[in-house]
Design a protein around this nucleic acid. Structure first.
Lengths: 152, 152
DNA sequence: AAGTAAAATTGACCTAGTCAAAACTGGCCA
DNA sequence: TGGCCAGTTTTGACTAGGTCAATTTTACTT
């Protein structure tokens, strides 16, 4: 980040509290963090701010929801995984998830708007987001015999 | 269904048990059932088979996993909802989910294979499935002032 | 410096499952 | 037709990942 996290918060109309700053800071450098990972990271952070060491579980969930609503972070919930939070927002990117180890990779939305944002039949819904998850095996989890199988 | 459920099971190499038949039967006529819904439906089913009234919670989850692995049913887990099970399998259809009431609609995969099955960059994964979820508000949940907003 | 709405803490509670071990049974075989 | 036994199911305890409600604290305004 360039902007201090406190300024980011205020720019979105949120109060700048130690807990919120700590969560935003803890998200940096980790693309898809779970609540538990953030909790550990914050508790063991000896970052000179003192107060940031302490954050209750409920407080963490509150902060995560506030930041999500302010669109400073995004929450994804792949099947079989606890919720994960990421700082990449506003770019409509998608995810590739390994069925075996759970590893997640970001995928840019290269197909543009058309097929990806509109269902063929919206059944009367007003759609505001298309979420794509690709499932498969990552290079590390794929059995050696099946490395790079021919694609089409 | 045309084929008796017992035959379906055997065709997939699974034993035909009262519990499995009961779950398959309970899925009919309900596009996206939760485990709890199936449990209630099975317990209150007085379908003359007698034994079908009884199914433990663990048994239900076992059956659901066995049927999923045999590709007789499919499990979806939209964020914020318990797992849901559906009989539609093998047709790569997707889902439209209402953010407000949780209602789910099936969407045929009209874009064919290309954009929907392949990420732009597969990051070394071998991808076997693309799952698309469209999020929005269904006609009933959309505030009256916003009915049918202009699209595009 | 005080007031106050917003945010955080506390601790109980809940849902949607999972685990391990014991008991039962469907379908094959003699 | 009965016995066997791997495959199923039951039982009951347990867990992860969160939510709820009430109280206390704090960041920002005046």
């Amino acid at each position: 980040m360039d902007q201090p996290v406190g300024e980011l918060l205020k720019a979105r109309g949120l109060r700048s509290t130690a807990q919120r700053r700590a969560v935003l800071t803890a998200l940096h450098g980790h693309a898809h963090s779970t609540a538990a990972e953030l909790e550990h990271r914050i508790q063991s952070a000896d970052d000179g701010e003192g107060a940031s060491r302490c954050l209750s579980r409920q407080g963490l969930y509150n902060v995560l929801e506030d930041l999500s609503r302010a669109e400073l972070i995004r929450c994804i919930e792949p099947a079989g995984s606890p919720a994960r939070y990421e700082l990449r927002v506003g770019d409509n990117h998608h995810h590739l998830v390994c069925r075996s180890c759970g590893r997640i990779k970001d995928v840019d939305c290269s197909v543009g708007r058309a097929p990806c944002l509109e269902p063929g039949d919206d059944a009367g819904f007003s759609v505001d987001e298309a979420e794509i998850t690709w499932w498969g095996l990552c290079a590390d989890c794929r059995p050696a015999s099946a490395q790079r199988p021919p694609r089409h």
